[in-house]
Design a protein around this nucleic acid. Structure first.
Length: 300
DNA sequence: AATGGTCAAGTCAGC
DNA sequence: GCTGACTTGACCATT
């Protein structure tokens, strides 16, 4: 079994640098964008080095790396300005065995009914893909999205997702992975979409615990795993636990060690990279890495 | 310097 | 039809 890489999304609070500085539309100018991009890249590099120094070899790059990059009214020519720098970072990352992924937010809806929304989603996916392509990363560097809205008709909404995904340029489809969510499309639906489109499923264990069709964790991990081809890298799994006393779907502030150990024990023998979607980010990731390193997975 | 309202964007529930 | 929640950090106008 390969070693599980553990990661966290976008932000390192220990370092305190800001890797997601942004711009308002009103304050947009290309020179300002250049300044913000450079500053975000500085922070990205700092975080990546910190991660490697601390044994964390999985990281989600923020969608805000290049502010307004995919805004249809702005479309700044950012690629030529930072392409070389991204490629340098990407080369280093690859040498270090670090895996990267990205996760467009809730506003990127591939299965929307309105054409305008879909075409904006396409622009946004192209932006994410540009970042990973310019970094020179192989196709195990994924872009994960949710299916989108249900619009009162699950089947039709899944059909729209399929046809939009099938129209994507090859380079984007090669990076696209679909993730089960906690209210619209559970794992079973994502597996169906995966079969139709030929893209892997990112299994989100927390969402699955909140919304499922009765599949036990082991079975869920196994079926999601089958959707990953050899070029896709080992599967990506997202993990969190409920915030005590929080509303439905809220993510924990910090790692629940016992919950996590139970998860690890149940995940044997599946091999995957694990993204910890927990609010205190790198602190929980470090603790999780320590727990995972202690052969917790062998003590079932 | 500190504060608090606002922000590119979409969906859904509740009125 | 409209508003606020979602979730959340950072911007930026105001003090």
């Amino acid at each position: 079994m390969g070693a599980m890489r553990i990661g966290y999304p976008c932000i390192n609070r220990t370092l305190g640098c800001v890797g997601a500085r942004t711009l308002r539309l009103r304050s947009y100018s290309f020179p300002r964008l250049e300044e913000v991009m450079a500053s975000n890249l500085d922070c990205l590099e700092t975080m990546l080095h910190w991660n490697v120094d601390h044994g964390l070899r999985f990281f989600r790059i923020t969608s805000d790396l290049i502010p307004l990059a995919s805004h249809p009214e702005v479309r700044p020519p950012w690629q030529e300005r930072i392409g070389e720098r991204l490629s340098k970072i990407g080369r280093w990352v690859s040498e270090q065995g670090v895996r990267i992924d990205m996760h467009p937010g809730q506003y990127t809806v591939l299965n929307a009914k309105e054409d305008r929304i879909v075409s904006n989603a396409l622009l946004d996916l192209a932006y994410h893909c540009d970042v990973l392509d310019l970094m020179g990363l192989d196709r195990s560097a994924k872009i994960q999205i949710h299916v989108g809205g249900v619009y009162g008709d699950r089947a039709a909404s899944m059909d729209r997702f399929v046809s939009a995904a099938q129209r994507l340029p090859k380079r984007i489809r090669a990076r696209l992975v679909v993730e089960n969510d906690e209210r619209g499309f559970p794992l079973a639906d994502c597996l169906g979409l995966s079969r139709r489109i030929g893209i892997p499923v990112v299994f989100d264990a927390y969402h699955h615990s909140l919304f499922n069709r009765g599949e036990p964790l082991r079975e869920a991990l196994a079926t999601a795993e089958e959707t990953w081809g050899s070029e896709d890298g080992i599967p990506i799994v997202d993990y969190s636990s409920p915030a005590p006393g929080g509303r439905f779907g809220r993510h924990a502030e910090t790692l629940d060690d016992r919950h996590f150990k139970r998860f690890l024990a149940q995940s044997v023998p599946h091999d995957f990279d694990l993204m910890l979607e927990i609010k205190d980010k790198e602190l929980s990731a470090l603790r999780a890495a320590a727990l995972a390193g202690d052969d917790v997975r062998l003590i079932t």
